[in-house]
Amino acid sequence: MLIGAVAAMAASAPAAEAAEAKVLLYGDSLLAGYGLSVENGFMAQLQSALDARGIDAELVNASVSGDTTSDGLSRLEWSLGVEPDAVILGLGANDMLQGLSPSQARENLNAILSRLDERNLPVLLLGMRANRGLGPDYVESFEAIYPDLAARYDALLYPFFLEGVALQTSLNQPDGLHPNERGVARIVESVLPLVEDLIERANR
């Protein structure tokens, strides 16, 4: 009788809620929150936006200011020790700023995405644009990296992380490279729908 009662209760109980998704932020200073207080950085503002929408997700920041794609590749395995359910990947800006080879940046990002794919981790890839002063060949080669790799690995793509913020004095810190609190808020508002899609993929 007791076993039957327990079985009946289990059958009538509502389905268990999906576990909280852990999302790893993996990038450079733009994701690390360079020049901003902790509460005004990208992770904190994105977490607040998700919380406000009732989306059950925990953001974990493994971003390092100054990192190139090579740096990101070299520390990837250690960073994945937090066992994320999904990854927001934003690397390449420092490769471009240093004028490093687009082909090398592509190779490094490809290796990162390949390892994430092996772990069946859904990815949101944050694209970056190149300084036009580097010349048309460099710009074309660099900017093609993100859509090409997103298509190859079926990753979600936000084409330009600084869309609507780059070159806007009121939305950037004095260095003109890093968004201020208002700039981050603009980015979060724009990227949020894709982050929601990413979390849905993680919960499948």
Rank of each mutant, 00 (worst) to 15 (best):
V188A: 03
L198V: 06
A185Y: 04
G164T: 09
Y158R: 10
V191C: 02
V195P: 15
L198T: 13
A130H: 04
L171R: 09
P159A: 10
V123E: 12
E181C: 01
A151Q: 14
V188L: 11
L171N: 00
L156V: 12
L162I: 13
I145H: 09
R152G: 03
L198C: 11
L134K: 06
V191H: 02
R182K: 12
D137E: 13
V195N: 14
E196L: 09
M128G: 12
N131S: 05
P174N: 05
E163T: 10
L162Y: 11
G127E: 05
F142A: 05
Y158M: 11
L126C: 07
Q173V: 09
L198H: 13
V123S: 02
G164W: 10
R186F: 07
G164Q: 11
P136V: 08
P193L: 15
G135K: 02
D175S: 14
L134Q: 03
T169P: 01
A185L: 02
H178W: 04
D148S: 13
G135C: 08
R182L: 15
S190Q: 14
R152S: 02
L124F: 02
E196F: 04
F161Y: 13
L156G: 03
P193D: 14
L198E: 14
H178Q: 09
G135L: 00
N131E: 00
H178D: 07
F161S: 02
F142K: 03
L194G: 05
G127N: 03
L171Q: 07
N131F: 06
L167N: 15
M128V: 14
Q168W: 10
P159C: 08
S141F: 00
G133A: 02
R182I: 06
F160E: 12
Y146K: 04
G127H: 05
F161E: 10
A130D: 00
E181N: 00
D137N: 13
E181L: 03
P159F: 04
H178F: 02
G127L: 00
L171V: 07
G133R: 10
N172G: 04
L198F: 11
L171E: 11
E143W: 05
L171G: 00
V139K: 04
L156P: 13
D148M: 11
